Amino acid sequence: MNTTPTPRIAIIGAGPGGLTCARILQQHGISATVYDHESGPEARDQGGTLDLHEDNGQIALREAGLLEEFFQLSRPEGQEMRQLDPAANIVFHHTPEEGERLKPEIDRGRLRELLLGSLKPGTMRWGHTLRSVESPAEGPRQLCFADGSTIEADLVIGADGAWSKVRCALSPATPQYSGVSFLEAWFHDVASQHPDIAELVGQGGAAAADGDRGLFAQRNSGDHIRVYVIQRVPADWITASGLTIEDTDGIRALLLDRYRDWSPRLRRLLTDNDGHYVDHPIHALPVPHTWEHNPTVTLLGDAAHLMPPLGVGVNLAMLDACELALALANSDTVDDAIHAYEKTMLPRSNEMQQLLDNGAEELLSTELPDFATEEEH
């Protein structure tokens, strides 16, 4: 970038998208600071495993100079996928070939560690909860944080996820509940403590659905498995049932009744988990989601195009991050870079949003997931 002086770039959100953007910018000699509301990198569990695709997520890691390190950390065996019927019969099974790198798995936490470790010291600012983006559109922008502190930036990049505060500077859109909810359950030391579940799931993922209910089990590293109970329910279904998320026994009893016609082997995914459940109502942004160009603010990832969790979110976020960073490196001004980035990103994300509109319903389909369709292609 030939702009003088060097623009002050603030990235809000230390997820894969925000960190990838910061890393690629630094690879091109451009400084950026990442602000995140969490107190530090170990503040919370980062979630399950991700498959990074060769045509988007891996492109970003290659540009970041981290692709080979990713392959060393990833689990290619995690590409194994099984589709089951409610009787626990396998109706489709993909086993990855030796050396297959189409979309190897990596735990979210390990990916984050890889990206954080690649950044220059001083890049991260933990404990910064953004409250609002102020000042005129032409900038500089003032970022106001919950602790009362403020900073100025010439470019604000919203990589702050579904409930983005940066989005408010560009768009009034808010995520809407899809009508489908995930309930997450954890299984630890599965080889010794849950061997039947370990065998059922295999090295990757196993899915089953009957049109109204679904289950998706996913192997993580460290001998862990996460299971997602997928239901078409009101967002407040737990409290509406007279329960709280801490009432594990009560929720188990409710699930056993709802899945009473399913195989006892699959029902163990509902009941044998270690610890509490975690509630994840699935939200998505209106389709399509766009905004008028702004010379000092833009969005990437879920902040720009939150969609149902059908395997594309993190990959699109990292591709967004890559393209935005390269646009900033190759443009004369921040404004030119945003124009170039959004010219590609918005049509791509709108196309994918339309493709996945009401996609949460697909999670309950007896054709869930699209392993067989992908195999045919």
Rank of each mutant, 00 (worst) to 15 (best):
T4M: 06
P5C: 09
P7I: 15
I9C: 02
L19W: 00
H28V: 06
H28G: 05
S31N: 07
S31E: 13
A32D: 02
G48T: 14
L50G: 03
H53N: 11
G57D: 08
I59M: 08
L66Q: 06
E68H: 11
L73E: 10
R75A: 10
L84Q: 05
A88P: 00
I90G: 04
R101I: 10
G109D: 12
E113Y: 04
P121V: 14
H128I: 07
L130S: 08
R131S: 12
V133N: 02
Q142Y: 05
Q142R: 15
L143I: 13
F145E: 12
G158Y: 00
G161E: 05
F187K: 06
D189P: 01
S192H: 09
Q193K: 15
Q193A: 15
D196Y: 01
A198L: 02
G202S: 06
Q203T: 15
A209T: 07
G214Y: 00
H224G: 08
D236P: 01
I238S: 04
I245T: 15
S263I: 10
P264C: 13
L270R: 01
D272N: 09
H276C: 10
P288C: 12
H289E: 11
V297T: 14
V297E: 04
P308Q: 08
L316R: 05
T333I: 12
D336E: 15
K343W: 08
Q353S: 11
Q354V: 11
L364Q: 11
E374D: 09
E375D: 12
